[in-house]
Design a protein around this nucleic acid. Structure first.
Lengths: 225, 225
DNA sequence: AAAATATTTTAGGCAGGGCTAAAAACAAGC
DNA sequence: GCTTGTTTTTAGCCCTGCCTAAAATATTTT
């Protein structure tokens, strides 16, 4: 039977599979801020339910039914995040905690109605793609970390790698939000920082770390000098 | 610390206090579909937290802090019900279960934003008053059960006593919804049933039980014959 | 390959909240 | 006042999911 904790584990496993390919207990300890023994415990529970395949000391893989639950939970999470930002006017750094709770509420029917009410959004407030009701969620976009952009590029922010509160607030303070178009004006080999130009003409220098977490699309049209 | 179960108990105690004046363990067993021993257990927990005063074998009363939590939970429950009906187009008999989950999500801030988004509704889809952020919720309306109406009265449905799914679906089948205005055309002493006239001119006879659960307002203007 | 280090599992507890069965307290009827 | 029936409490158990400590297995280093 599905519980909040089990859904959280399945969602974490799905995300780690995407990010890293294979899922170690250690990676779950980190992602879920828990203890190794708790992970082993829960993996047994999930394996007994047929949601994961688990071989001792070897790692874990989602089964089809486990992936279905994980995708559904992720879908709910991201739709509720859109709700909180679009309808209740929260900022993108405030919504994660509540979405963690909301993702465990509602069935497919409710989720689909929420989806329709929100206008079938394709991306959540952090630029992450929202799985469809059929469980599709590869977004087909070709995003690169802003750290890979070179001088002269015009780039548009389409997502973030780390959607933690601290990082998002950092972007807020820099007046960087989803959809913003920036131009790379300088690049320092020394610390791999870059200077960017905002649409209003202002400039600022961003650190390598900040740039690595920004997922951008290179715009075809070059900037005019 | 607040948990889902504790909030459920506090809300149940509040409702029983309103309905019956005093709260017995038995009444909680019925309201929460649980067992006597579970109630005793939880009342100890709630008393230790300072949310209720409990004297063995004597009954239980909410403290101020307990009442605050109960009212806040009830407020969230009813606001989410409005959301589900107004925004996601659920019918009034479908929303209770999800609202039971949603009422445990979010803080005051989220609740107040939801309230504003919904346009500060005063009543939920069953006609029950929604407590304000300050915990006021006496609605001042003077509602009577429809069973008290007499022939010739024009009555408007403003709420229901029992908002269980079965009863609400019964009303749906009769094309009775909140705000509907009916006229009493016949009254049978025999079984205390009454015949009512719909705005479209159709008629139907309602049982005593059905009428007792409908909370109505008598409209001042008499019906024209 | 052996030693040192890191990861995972087992063993055994704990807290929350549910349950049953039996005992205790209260309420009613005779 | 006793007896009967109902309500409440106690006692003891179960399940979920967390934890620590220690043992077992992998991996890395030398």
């Amino acid at each position: 039977m599905q519980t909040i904790s089990r859904e959280d584990y399945l969602k974490a496993i799905l995300k780690i599979e995407e990010e890293a390919g294979s899922v170690s207990n250690q990676s779950l300890v980190e992602k879920l801020s828990t203890r190794p023994a708790s992970v082993t415990n829960m993996l047994h529970t999930l394996a007994d339910a047929g949601w994961v395949e688990h071989e001792a000391y070897k790692g874990v893989r989602l089964t089809d039914s486990g992936k279905e639950i994980a995708l559904s939970t992720l879908r709910k999470h991201r739709l509720w995040e859109v709700f909180l930002v679009d309808k209740l006017s929260f900022s993108w750094d405030e919504v994660h905690q509540w979405a963690e709770d909301l993702e465990h509420v509602g069935d497919e029917e409710l989720t689909n109605r929420l989806d329709a009410f929100l206008g079938h959004p394709a991306f959540d407030p952090h630029g992450d793609p929202i799985p469809t009701a059929q469980g599709q969620w590869s977004d087909g976009r070709n995003l690169i970390p802003a750290s890979k952009a070179v001088v002269g590029d015009r780039i548009q922010l389409k997502g973030v790698v780390d959607s933690g509160e601290a990082y998002l607030q950092h972007l807020d303070r820099l007046k960087i939000e989803l959809g913003l178009i920036l131009e790379v004006s300088k690049s320092l080999d020394f610390d791999e920082s870059k200077t960017l130009i905002w649409p209003d003409g202002s400039e600022a220098s961003l650190s390598k770390q900040t740039l690595q977490n920004m997922l951008v699309e290179k715009l075809s049209g070059k900037a005019k000098n």
